Amino acid sequence: MQSPTPNATGGLPPGTVADAQRGNWVDRFAPDWLKPYARLARWDRPIGFWLLFWPCGFGLGLAAIANPQRGFDVVALVLCLVGAIMMRGAGCTFNDIVDRDFDARVARTRSRPIPSGQVTPWHALLFMLAQSLAGFLILIQFNMFTIWLGIASLGLVAIYPFMKRITWWPQLYLGFAFSWGALVGWASQDAGLTLPAVLAYIGSILWVIGYDTIYALQDVEDDALAGVKSTARLFGANATPAVAGFYAGAVLLWAIAAFMVGAGLPFVLGMGAVVAILVWQVVTLVPSDGTNALVRFKANHWAGLALTLALVLDWLI
């Protein structure tokens, strides 16, 4: 592996990446041989696997309310979390292999392990396969329907990195992949799918489009120079009302799904926290300020946690 050049890191501490928080656990504690691969899998930026994981919580929570005698499957929740970490890492690794030339031309991403020369594309491919195998070992703990459902998601993961080249809606395709956990969580309990699970999935897609539009605001200028498309560029000055619309649609579909399985007042009260977090993002968003956008993007971890807790609270009460 090559050492990163000064131009690749832009004056950052050796090996670190521009869009990771300084002093994260990978920088501080991971052995030197592991650090480039941990950064490739984004273990130093856990927000991604949380956002991939929370839809699993939505599906499990809905299934628990639909069948309260069976209850909330904590074991399945833990398996989904480990699987989300593995598959998010594999997806990020694949994305960085495909996007290595684009990443080298964008200020926020040129310090990543592949464009900066810390990891070769071949080694990255082997690392991606290892993470995928770990994810598959998690997946086969579930019923056969869920196993095939999980395998089907690989097609979405495979096409996503190419969407920014051919469509202004790569966030939609990210939503297809990142929301799949809502289907997996439900299917892990029922070995099938019904309308509430599908509505939760579509609502999560709208949520992903909203928060990833916020995320993409950080790169609007560099993306324009590199020829990368995004909803942030597509919406332009209308990014804030567009995000508000996607969030409103997500809340509506989540609420319909919950009421269809019998949720009541406890869910409504818990859902208030979700709405408050999303409204705060929209009201305080400054599209021209990348730091502002990143903080609001990361707040969606708490929105996902709040929605999962609202469902669990309703099942308990």
Rank of each mutant, 00 (worst) to 15 (best):
P4D: 14
P4H: 12
N7D: 13
L12T: 04
P14F: 09
T16K: 05
A20P: 06
A20S: 15
G23C: 13
G23S: 07
V26N: 01
D27N: 07
D27W: 05
D32F: 05
D32I: 12
K35Y: 05
Y37A: 09
A38K: 05
A38R: 05
A41G: 09
D44V: 00
R45F: 07
I47R: 13
L52K: 06
G57T: 11
G59Y: 07
G61E: 07
L62T: 00
L62R: 02
A63K: 07
A64E: 05
I65F: 01
N67V: 11
F72K: 14
L77K: 06
V82P: 00
V82D: 01
G83E: 04
I85Y: 08
G89H: 12
G89L: 10
C92L: 03
N95A: 07
V98K: 12
V98I: 15
V98E: 12
D99N: 05
D99P: 00
R100S: 08
R100N: 13
D103H: 07
A104G: 04
V106L: 09
A107Q: 13
T109P: 00
T109I: 01
S111K: 02
S111L: 04
P113F: 09
I114C: 09
P115H: 02
L126Y: 01
Q131W: 04
L133A: 15
A134V: 13
F136M: 15
F136T: 06
I138N: 04
I140Y: 02
Q141I: 00
M144E: 11
W148P: 07
A152E: 02
S153D: 02
S153K: 07
L154R: 03
G155R: 02
V157Q: 02
R165W: 11
T167Q: 12
T167N: 09
W169S: 10
F176N: 10
A177Q: 08
G181C: 09
L183Q: 03
L183H: 06
V184K: 00
A191F: 00
A191E: 13
L195A: 12
V198Y: 07
V198S: 04
L199A: 13
L206C: 15
V208P: 11
G210C: 13
Y211T: 09
D212W: 08
D212P: 05
D212M: 01
T213R: 11
L217E: 13
Q218F: 10
D222S: 12
D223P: 03
G227E: 07
T231V: 11
L234K: 15
A237S: 15
P241Q: 01
V243Q: 02
F246H: 15
A248W: 03
L253E: 00
W254Y: 13
M260H: 05
G262N: 09
G264W: 03
G264E: 01
G270K: 01
M271F: 14
M271P: 04
V279Y: 15
Q281P: 10
V282S: 14
V282Y: 04
L285I: 06
L285G: 09
P287Q: 04
T291Q: 14
V295M: 09
R296A: 15
F297G: 08
N300S: 10
N300K: 13
N300F: 09
H301A: 15
A303L: 11
G304T: 08
A310W: 02
A310M: 04
V312T: 01
V312F: 09
V312Y: 06
V312D: 03
L313A: 14
L313G: 07
W315E: 03
W315D: 04
L316R: 03
